[in-house]
């Protein structure tokens, strides 16, 4: 299946969470994991990738946390995929490092190239401010879900 990794899925949700808050708001990683139902260690690694790519920044200590490094209008879904997947390139023959011997003359390469351009252009148009605009129902669903998750769960089998 042609698709994104779970990391990219989670990264998009994490950035959406921050984009939904007041500009400049810092939150802790455990708080995001809880609200967005993401595993904390995984979230930490993803945050690392997004910081390296200049999408998020972190501040340590009291009042610290993570926030968007630039306005949500300037962060696209393509930015996220490039940061986490290492790129959106449908076929390896389109990458600079290891060109195919037939290169330019190859007809399928051109088709993979056009498909890559199309997908990249599409993902670049999706910025996080637009996603926030489409998000009110979603936020409510998350808050409700997070509240449910906090309630103690009665287990029939005692944990050893």
């Amino acid at each position: 299946m042609i698709g994104i990794s779970r990391q990219s899925d989670y990264a998009a949700r994490l950035v959406l969470h921050l984009a939904c808050l007041e500009p400049g708001t810092r939150v802790s990683i455990p708080e995001i994991s809880k609200t967005r139902l993401l595993p904390a260690p995984f979230t930490r690694r993803i945050v690392g990738d997004l910081v390296k790519a200049g999408i998020l920044n972190t501040l340590r200590g009291t009042g610290g946390g993570i926030r968007l490094a630039r306005p949500a209008t300037e962060i696209s879904l393509l930015d996220i995929l490039e940061a986490v997947e290492g790129g959106v390139v449908l076929n390896a023959c389109l990458e600079g490092g290891k060109p195919c011997v037939f290169g330019q003359g190859c007809l399928v390469q051109r088709a993979w190239g056009d498909a890559t351009d199309l997908l990249r252009r599409h993902l670049a148009t999706v910025t996080f401010d637009t996603l926030v605009g489409a998000s009110p129902d979603h936020q409510a669903a998350h808050s409700q879900r997070a509240a449910q998750a906090q309630k103690p769960v009665r287990r029939s089998i005692p944990l050893s």
Binding site: I2, I4, A12, R13, L16, L77, D114, A115, L118, L119, H122, L123, V126, L131, V132, A134, S135, D137, H138, A140, A141, H142, R145
Partner: peptide, 22 residues
Amino acid sequence: PLASACPVQSVWVDATRVLEDY
């Protein structure tokens, strides 16, 4: 469980269609 209200889900659906159609 939140897919129906998720704004990113619909974007993945659209992008998938763009690629499939091409």
